[in-house]
């Protein structure tokens, strides 16, 4: 464990808790893409199946349980409890165009052709594009609530911090996972224009409005 990975995990946890808190407090999931949350729940389920087979540490297991539980709790809030506030008309990104290519790529480009490894690879590829429906929704509505932009900032920062973690681990531990690194770069790059808007607007107290 290193400071980059720890702050990355905490940033990830913060993002997930901000989202749950926003929906619960405002009793509304307006501006939130349910489709992205479906993809995240798929990512965690596919990636954390090893939760019961190989124990890494208490921290690792506890975080995996929290991420899976929070992902499904968010889906419940969006599609059951507050479904009247779900923005069905704007949340229209075709996620099958993300799921199929990621599944195909995971079958072709992986470290080892076993069930767990292919599912892990699928989750890595899927996570790198899982935010697209959410960014698409924000671009369609042209704005995002401030709390939603904080959620996106924390979520985008987590994988950026993981990139630093991989640089650190490469030099100090000789750890190198090209699949995770390339997908992590793609994932972080997708947030760049959002990061720019967040830094130039939200930090200065203005609402996140995309230039029309």
């Amino acid at each position: 464990m290193n400071i980059f990975r720890l702050t990355g995990d905490l940033s990830h946890l913060l993002a997930i808790l901000i989202l749950l808190w926003k929906i619960w407090k405002t009793r509304s999931c307006s501006g939130i893409s349910g489709r992205s949350q479906i993809l995240f729940a798929t990512v965690y389920t596919a990636r954390y199946l090893d939760l019961f087979t190989n124990f890494v540490s208490v921290y690792n297991s506890v975080m995996k349980i929290i991420f899976i539980a929070a992902a499904f709790a968010t889906l419940y809030l969006i599609y059951v409890k507050f479904k009247a506030t779900y923005d069905r008309n704007h949340d229209t990104f075709r996620i099958e165009f993300l799921l199929a290519p990621c599944a195909l790529l995971a079958l072709i480009l992986n470290h080892e052709f076993t069930i767990l490894e292919v599912l892990w690879t699928f989750s890595i590829y899927l996570e790198s594009v899982a935010i697209l429906p959410q960014l698409f929704l924000v671009s369609k509505t042209g704005e995002a609530e401030t709390i939603t932009s904080h959620y996106l900032f924390a979520l985008g920062s987590y994988r950026a911090l993981y990139l630093l973690n991989w640089i650190y681990r490469y030099y100090f531990e000789g750890f190198f996972d090209l699949i995770a690194i390339v997908a992590g770069i793609v994932q972080t790059v997708l947030y760049c224009d959002f990061f720019y808007l967040y830094i130039t607007r939200v930090i200065k107290g203005r609402a996140l409005k995309l230039p029309a």
Binding site: R5, D177, A180
Partner: peptide, 10 residues
């Protein structure tokens, strides 16, 4: 075959 990468990250 590549060295097995231990999956210790989230």
């Amino acid at each position: 075959p590549e060295t097995k990468i231990i999956k210790d990250e989230l």
